[in-house]
C-alpha cells in the first residue's frame, strides 16, 4: 500500500522512555474511508503509538504523515487534520458540553457561524440535546463520552485516532459510539482505532494490526489473520495465538506486507 494514498502513514516509529522501549519500529497506514483496528495486550505500546500519531508525543525515531503533511515539520497543519479521542478523557467539570465544544472549536480556528452550525449538527446526531447545556460534572459516563466524541468530530477532521473510545462504557453506550464511528467512515474519514473488545473490532474494522511488545506482529483482514494464526476460529483466538508466541510471524514477512 502506498503511503501517498494514505490519510495517515507511520514509518519506522520508535519511542524510548529512558531505557524502556515502548514502541520498537512501527509501520502503519490508513486510507480514507477505512477503519483500521490496533489490537494488543496491555502495555503493548498501543497508547504510545496512537499518541505519536496524534502528535502529542515526539517519536524517538521515524516519521508520521497526516494527509501527506509531515508531523515533525509542520505540526500545526498536520494536527488540524486529526480528531483524537481517548477513553480516559474527561471533560472540564464546570463547563457544559456546548461550552467545551465552543472552546475547542475556537482553538481549531472555526468561524463562529460554522462552529454554531457544527455544534447544532453534533448535538442532533449524537442525541445530546438533553444534556448539552448541563455542567459536565453532572453527566453520566455515556453522556460524557458522547460529548467527547463530538469534540473529536467537531472540526471535521480527515483522520480520527480513537484510543479505546468505548472503555468503561455499558453495552448500550458502547454500541452508540461504535455506530457513530461507522457513520464517520461512510463520510470518507480514515479511522485508526484501538480496543480490547474483539467483537467490536470484528464488527467495525476493515483491517486489524496486532501489536505486541512495541511491534506489529501481524496485519490484515480478519479471515486472513485467523488463517495465519494456526487457523484460529475467531479474532480472540488469533490474538491469543500471537500474544502467547510473543514473537513476530513465523514466515518472517515484513509487517504490513500481507495487505
Amino acid at each position: 500500500m502506498s503511503s501517498e494514498a494514505s490519510a495517515l502513514a507511520a514509518e519506522g516509529l520508535v519511542k524510548h522512555y529512558g531505557p524502556t522501549i515502548a514502541v520498537a519500529g512501527l509501520d502503519l497506514a490508513v486510507r480514507p474511508g477505512e477503519v483500521v483496528g490496533l489490537l494488543g495486550p496491555n502495555g503493548a505500546g498501543k497508547t504510545t503509538a496512537l499518541r505519536m500519531l496524534a502528535g502529542i508525543l515526539r517519536p524517538t525515531q521515524g516519521r508520521v504523515r497526516i494527509g501527506g503533511i509531515d508531523m515533525a515539520e509542520r505540526p500545526l497543519e498536520a494536527k488540524a487534520l486529526i480528531g483524537f479521542l481517548s477513553g480516559d478523557t474527561q471533560l472540564y467539570q464546570r463547563l457544559s458540553p456546548r461550552e467545551t465544544l465552543q472552546y475547542f472549536g475556537r482553538l481549531h480556528g472555526l468561524s463562529e457561524a460554522r462552529l454554531a452550525a457544527r455544534i447544532d449538527d453534533l448535538v442532533r446526531d449524537l442525541e445530546m440535546a438533553s444534556f448539552a447545556d448541563r455542567p459536565s460534572a453532572t453527566l453520566s459516563a455515556g453522556q460524557k463520552q458522547r460529548a467527547n466524541i463530538a469534540r473529536a468530530f467537531l472540526h471535521e477532521p480527515s483522520v480520527l485516532i480513537l484510543d479505546e473510545p468505548t472503555n468503561a462504557l455499558d453495552v448500550l453506550s458502547g454500541r452508540f459510539i461504535v455506530e457513530s464511528i461507522r457513520k464517520e467512515r461512510a463520510k470518507g474519514r480514515a479511522i485508526l482505532f484501538s480496543t480490547h473488545i474483539m467483537s467490536e473490532a470484528e464488527y467495525l474494522c476493515d483491517r486489524i494490526s496486532l501489536i505486541h511488545e512495541g511491534r506489529i506482529v501481524d496485519e490484515g483482514e480478519v479471515p486472513a489473520l485467523c488463517a495465519r494464526a494456526g487457523d484460529a476460529k475467531n479474532l480472540t483466538d488469533a490474538f491469543l495465538y500471537h500474544v502467547e508466541r510473543g514473537a513476530p510471524r513465523a514466515d518472517g514477512a515484513a509487517p504490513g506486507g500481507a495487505a
Binding site: 499518541r51 494536527k79 483524537f84 474527561q90 471533560l91
Partner: peptide, 11 residues
C-alpha cells in the same frame, strides 16, 4: 482529568 492531551493534540 485527561484533558491535557486533548489540548496537546489540537493545532
Amino acid at each position: 482529568r485527561g484533558t491535557m492531551q486533548t489540548l496537546l493534540c489540537a493545532p
